[in-house]
Amino acid sequence: MSWKIPENLKYTKSDEWIDPQTGKVGITDYAQSQLSDVVYVEIIVSEGETVNKGDIIATIESVKAAADVYAPVSGKVVEVNEGLADTPEVVNSDPYGDAWLVRMEISDPSELDELMDADAYRKYCEERED
């Protein structure tokens, strides 16, 4: 198995990515492949809302699974990808691009250090494929 794991992002154990530069958050290629065909995305936080690391920010459903998406770090939600509701399939086709969920203003950049880099995340994905 091989998954796209961009070098410039940080990753969580629950398979979210965050771009330290832009503050965009989404789910990883590994996560979308586990879910299979995504049919529904619901972002449950709104612009201006403050979230803590680990809060549920979105729910993603496929035909056979449902996953909650957690905030990788604490901060303020400054933008929500409204268009995703109508095009849930881009979570499968472009998980790191058009399928970003929210953009955050990171309140404590030191929280980023607790996340995995691309190498660590790749190992973590491989471990789970027995």
Partner: peptide
């Protein structure tokens, strides 16, 4: 359809 709402997938949620 929309079975991801149901107990066999979402369990406690």
């Amino acid at each position: 359809t929309l079975t991801a709402r149901e107990q066999h997938i979402r369990r406690a949620r």
